[in-house]
Design a protein around this nucleic acid. Sequence first.
DNA 1: CAAAGTCTTCAGAGATTTCTGAAGGCTTGA
DNA 2: TCAAGCCTTCAGAAATCTCTGAAGACTTTG
Lengths: 153, 153
Amino acid sequence: MADTTEAAEHLALVLAQGGLQKATARVLAAFMFADEDSVTAPDLAERLGISSGSVSGAIKMLSTVGLIERAAAPGSRREHYRVREGAWATLMSAQNGMVQAMFQAADRGIQAAGPDSPAARRLEEMRDFYGYMFAHLPALVERWQAERTKSRP
Amino acid sequence: MADTTEAAEHLALVLAQGGLQKATARVLAAFMFADEDSVTAPDLAERLGISSGSVSGAIKMLSTVGLIERAAAPGSRREHYRVREGAWATLMSAQNGMVQAMFQAADRGIQAAGPDSPAARRLEEMRDFYGYMFAHLPALVERWQAERTKSRP
DNA sequence: CAAAGTCTTCAGAGATTTCTGAAGGCTTGA
DNA sequence: TCAAGCCTTCAGAAATCTCTGAAGACTTTG
């Protein structure tokens, strides 16, 4: 096998560009590349060379967003975590929140600007676009989930 | 009409959360809410109370991404700019680049991790998901554009 | 061709975000 | 109930990102 560490750091970089903070991105990447089924917090701190506080923060954030979950710890005293099934669909759905925010901001703008103004016309195009996306994006994710469970029953 | 400034600042906030830097977000929002068809750089600097350097940087960035464009300036010596038609579709397409990056990062990880490992299985789910999105997202945008030109010939 | 004015660049100040490390709370097991 | 260890919190350090403002390059006009 090639260099897993390098591939993991690359993934972390992409995730960071997507808005995650660096430590959080590296933690998520470490979860993805772990050889075990689940990982503990001190473990991550050691592998990545970051403080326990950073790991705690990252785990909290990733749990909140629904990307990771606690895993049953077989007799271990520490908490085990792992990437959640369907995590990426979840992440995409979160992006959908941004789409909705754009839609609402446009809508609010239209009411503030006078009707028939240049601003209103621009904002209407924006609202239409994000309205369309907001209406159709979730369906796209659902279609993937449907196809997935079909091929993996 | 209600308070346009407030609505503009709100839009800027949403845009900033989407990754634009604050000054750039405010400039783009100002473009959206302008009463005129096009705006000049000094104009923006004054309205927003920011330096000419910031405006220059913002305009450069927004032009690069394809959100604004130079407008024909009728006898004026200054450059005029305006929001580009279809700007939001462009922005969404840019997001598609992120989807592609995620796909590629997953793919790269699969080759680095051994086959039949837990990591490989996780990465395969990830790759499948983003592969699906990458295959279908552009079509969604195109469908919107098609419907748009249909109703506005 | 010179002058006036506009736009861009960039080094440094400033603001913001992020990480650390230690202190304290909580859980588990004896 | 007590001891041991894990996890979280948070204030401050560190790093990063952003904005400013002035200097200079470029463009247009007289």
